[in-house]
């Protein structure tokens, strides 16, 4: 880099990393990186969705009967919780854009609380499945618990636990990311010029929501 780049050193805002020339440039690269990451997330989940469709094609009757055992209402409740958390996350990004520190903190806290509610509901769902022996692979023991499920139902439960489990891991990671953003917001690091970290955390959280939007009808609802 030529020496011209350092002429404006005294004007450089504190949050502008040394390898960027302007805030806008820094923001564009951060966002592009986040979008690329979001796309790889979609590609990763698409493999599992394809596995679902293949299973559906191979054993339609089994899949429909086995999925009847999932709790539609709890799944629907979790959908609404996640949608609401996405809403508050979007409001949080807006609060950061408009220098509203209080609203940013409030919205981040609501989002994190919603993530915890999601995991608690998931815990109840999982424990019911474990209690009834509706488990993947060799752990599958539905017949001992009085369930007459078709052969290969264990494959469906394998898929159910893999898909919702991987999504759950993303929720846990999201709690970590949002907590980090909340701590930085408390330190008043964000402003209408410097909010790309909040926005990127938001994009991650919306991806988690997006995956659930497709997971929920496929696993719980579709007959």
């Amino acid at each position: 880099m030529s020496s011209n780049a350092h002429d404006h050193d005294e004007e450089r805002p504190w949050f502008l990393a040394h390898h960027f020339d302007t805030v806008g440039q820094q923001m564009s690269s951060a966002k592009l990186g986040m979008w690329l990451f979001a796309c790889t997330e979609l590609l990763m989940f698409s493999g599992l969705f394809l596995a679902y469709f293949i299973l559906r094609k191979m054993y339609p009757e089994m899949l429909l009967t086995a999925s009847e055992e999932l709790n539609k209402t709890l799944g629907g409740l979790n959908t609404i919780v996640l949608l609401f958390s996405s809403y508050t996350m979007a409001l949080g990004v807006r609060a950061a854009q408009t220098n509203n520190k209080k609203a940013l903190e409030r919205n981040l806290i609501i989002t994190i609380v919603c993530a915890f509610i999601f995991l608690i509901v998931k815990y109840f769902e999982y424990s019911a499945k474990i209690h009834h022996g509706l488990l993947p692979g060799d752990l599958f023991a539905a017949a001992e618990h009085g369930y007459h499920l078709p052969k290969y139902s264990k494959v469906f439960y394998g898929l159910y636990f893999t898909m919702t489990g991987l999504h759950g891991v993303h929720v846990v990671v999201g709690i970590g990311v949002l907590t980090w953003i909340l701590i930085r917001a408390r330190r008043s690091e964000f402003s209408s010029q410097n909010y790309v970290a909040v926005e990127n955390a938001g994009i991650y959280w919306h991806i988690v929501d997006l995956v659930w939007i497709f997971l929920f009808p496929l696993l719980y609802l579709v007959k």
Partner: peptide, 18 residues
């Protein structure tokens, strides 16, 4: 901020994309 400059390969860029 007074007209910050973007540099590409050591040369200033006239209308940087932001």
């Amino acid at each position: 901020m007074s007209d910050p400059k973007v540099f590409l390969n050591g040369k200033p860029v006239e209308h940087p994309h932001e």
